[in-house]
Amino acid sequence: MIPEGSTRPLLEVTGLTVDFPSGASRVRAVDEVSFEVRANEICALVGESGCGKSTLAHALVGLVPPPGQVVAGQLRLEGETYSSTSPREWRALRGAQVGMVFQAAMSGFNPVATIGRQVEHILKAHPETFPSVAAGRAYFEELLGLVQLPVQRVWGAYEGELSGGMKQRVAIVTALLLKPRVLVLDEPTTALDVLNQRLVIDLLRQLHQRLGLTMIFVTHDLAVVADVADRTLVMYAGRLVESGGTREIFGRGRKHPYVTALIEAVPSVLEDGLSIRAIAGEVPNLAHLPPGCRFAPRCLMAEALCSEVEPALQCDASGHAVACHVVNRVDWRVST
């Protein structure tokens, strides 16, 4: 998928498929998703509820909640497959190679242990990262400095003594403690107000610059994507429908009718809102998917073929990929 001559991707996801049993049948939450993330890149995974973005994020760290199951696909980190490891191997890998900040990070700390004790616990479980617990604590302190939190305020504190914005910062710092090569963030700004959201975004941008961090940023907020991501992947009902550079996706380079409709549905403070359009209908239930393209029933450009055959993701020479019959046939650029 990557054009020749560019650097090797840090993370490669190939044909990843996750099923959830539902009664006698199965619901496919993530359906043959493939993508790559290059080193030092901020990659946004965006979509509406039920599109599979959060399930995919969990699959990257081997934590698909049961009864969900990864039924196909490969994960590679710097060319080495890591998707079929045992639970024991996952424990060594998770956090240290691929870190994650969960959506529930705000309430993800143990309320009856101080933050410091929880950090020590992580350091003891991963003795390979630092020569001593004290060295690990020093690194934690250094990271806290980057997010403008004094260690004295945090170390002895219980989760309940920190504000929402503080907790989210501590959660991010804790996820970085073991120096993962890739950090997956699941809706890190969702429960925050605009100012705390800006604080977290500024912080991630800074960590990205200072530590050369590679990030996968899962969110439903398109304005946040347009603010942080180098590259944007858009999912719909379990499938990847378009991926490309963020500027392309939010500008003239965007192709998929769903992506266009989605971006046109975001009210912007810079505009009077006259061009805002809602998308008719709702996201389909994964247990009752329409035949053919999953967006076809809501799509203004749908043709007969769209409700019969599922379109494949096709990639052009620049690495921009789109799954749409209409667009791929004529390579018609959606005007904006």
């Binding site: 100012l195 800006r198 500024d202 398109l222 994507v225 347009a226 603010d227 500027r247 939010f250 912007s268």
Partner: peptide
């Protein structure tokens, strides 16, 4: 508040970021 809301436009976000008032919570 107005400056801190991102908009669905990467180029304008970058441009607005340069002139933002400092964020103090």
């Amino acid at each position: 508040l107005l400056q801190s809301v991102p908009v669905p436009d990467p180029a304008r976000n970058e441009q607005r970021r340069r002139d933002q008032l400092p964020l103090v919570l």
